[in-house]
Design a protein around this nucleic acid. Sequence first.
DNA 1: TTTAGTGCAAAGGCTTTGCACACCG
DNA 2: CGGTGTGCAAAGCCTTTGCACTAAA
Lengths: 160, 160
Amino acid sequence: VSTPVTITTEAILDTFGTVGLRNTRPRRLIAQRLAELAARGEDFATDDLWQSLQQQDPQLGRATVFRAVDVLVEHGVLDRVTFADGTHRYRVCGPGAHHHHVICNVCHRVVEINMCLTPELLAAIERSTNFTLEGHSVELFGRCADCRQTALSRPGHGGN
Amino acid sequence: VSTPVTITTEAILDTFGTVGLRNTRPRRLIAQRLAELAARGEDFATDDLWQSLQQQDPQLGRATVFRAVDVLVEHGVLDRVTFADGTHRYRVCGPGAHHHHVICNVCHRVVEINMCLTPELLAAIERSTNFTLEGHSVELFGRCADCRQTALSRPGHGGN
DNA sequence: TTTAGTGCAAAGGCTTTGCACACCG
DNA sequence: CGGTGTGCAAAGCCTTTGCACTAAA
């Protein structure tokens, strides 16, 4: 459950092609299903994805799905979203743009945001740590409007 | 390998006490080892911690170590650090203060930084997403001074 | 004495691997 | 055809669970 993303089956297949991977039946099935999940804004665990695809083609191998997901994460089609409890799921991510996630601790809804660390802050961090920064991830945890009522809690890693 | 943190064995044991947990031999062993790791700035995988402690006391159960680590993470003595490849390790974290991590993609060195998202930014995110934020994690990936030379690369989740 | 804590070994979830066969280009 | 891609089933890794026993308070 999260923000919908528009992407076509073909765009995903193209990604495979661009990387030099063949256009095969399993990859077509996967691309198609991912496009659907993207439209509905749903995230998924790789194994779940496999299980659901298997109903469509009982032959489909689990490893094939894991391998495809890896490729797509590697090439920015999918995001790995890590929840406050340390578990992770994947979601089709918005077009190219760099973004981060706001995650509901109760219902696990994921919302993409474009806000980001400022270049100045990053530069300051590079200076003070003597690192060359290559990337970063920011996950914000909280409660979505729908889950605001709910009582239990257990925030993520940070305080603030 | 990371920034050293000063904490005593006793302080860790106190944490157990404060939470209403007993002062037992296994917990003493664990606390002592963690204080050492903290001083040396080393992070660890729970299972590794168990293996090393087991040499000291072959009786020590794996589950005991996992349970202790959970408690300490829960109470802010340990941080779970997630690397760019999705794996995670733990480290003793600095005193109380909210902080984030800069992680070397090559050698996995971890440096704590105090810089953080600004309250204004957080407020803006709450407004735009209609979430109530409860916490967040920020991991910055890059290359430390020592690893700057090295050629290979594969940044984390974000671009920027 | 009472109940939390522990060790053990088994089970669990998720993911990867190895290999013979299938099939894309 | 040639080599990538695949299905399958087994193994791996890390972690949790269940339970009888041990030891704190």
